[in-house]
Design a protein around this nucleic acid. Structure first.
Lengths: 134, 134
DNA sequence: TACTGTAGTTCGCGCCACGAACTATCTGGA
DNA sequence: TCCAGATAGTTCGTGGCGCGAACTACAGTA
């Protein structure tokens, strides 16, 4: 039904807004926070990043450029194939990422806390399932 | 818990990505589609739009500018207070909005259909409640 | 060696969102 | 009445985002 979809979409705007607010407080963007989150436990190539983020390779170039200019991220040459570029998070980036994640956690945690436990569990379960089968 | 929040945030990226894809197919942006959705049953002032969208008034100016340039929207002067500007959707805008909404509906509908009815109902209910008390 | 494919970068475009400075209009109080 | 704020929008400059097209450099292969 239309209203269901509307509610879902508006929910995503609310959540994205909360994340954007947190990002702004920490002087980064949502895209960069998301990038840092991925790099927390990966050291992907540009192409892999693009696939994961659903972005064109030129978009990834720009995103990494800006993050690197801020000292959050580093490019390193591939060992065997000199065409590939691996991206690593720096200490500064890792620290910023941790603070940002905690802040998002806090913000959305209070939002989620407003729901009764059953609803909340259902929401989270549904989110997991939807994301899993993307 | 951190994973809950992660799942929720990734869900919003997935949904926003789907909406963005639909928007691109129809040669508009997500922001403009959202604007048209609001105008479907309102005729707000710039300030009201800003409040509803959570945007600065200068952002609203730009958004309406671009939509108007595309013929999707019209500005009209306020009746009593000549400072205010009301925004109305045009026929073209209304039609585009309807097509976009249907496409988003279809896209997210299949996504939602993958959930069993209980999960789905819970997700929608949670979404409604979260949005309501923003 | 020459050809073809792949990984990234660069450039130009339009869009988005913000804040500061500005214009026009409205309103309440001396 | 008049004027000092307050309010509604616009404009301008800045930075970020995402795309596609054109380009470079390297890899693998006939």
């Amino acid at each position: 039904m239309s209203e269901d979809v509307d509610a879902l979409v508006e929910l995503t705007f609310a959540v994205q807004g909360a994340v954007a607010a947190v990002a702004a407080e920490h002087d980064v963007t949502v895209a960069q926070l998301r990038l840092l989150g991925i790099l927390r436990d990966h050291e992907p190539t540009m192409a892999q990043l693009g696939a994961h983020l659903g972005l064109d390779k030129s978009s990834v170039s720009g995103l990494v450029d800006r993050a690197q200019r801020r000292g959050l991220v580093i490019r390193s040459a591939g060992a065997h194939d000199r065409r590939v570029v691996h991206v690593q998070v720096t200490d500064a980036g890792r620290e910023l990422s941790a603070r940002g994640a905690a802040a998002v956690e806090a913000r959305l945690g209070t939002l989620l806390a407003a729901l009764d436990p059953a609803d909340r569990a259902a929401l989270v379960a549904a989110a997991r399932r939807l994301v899993a089968q993307r």
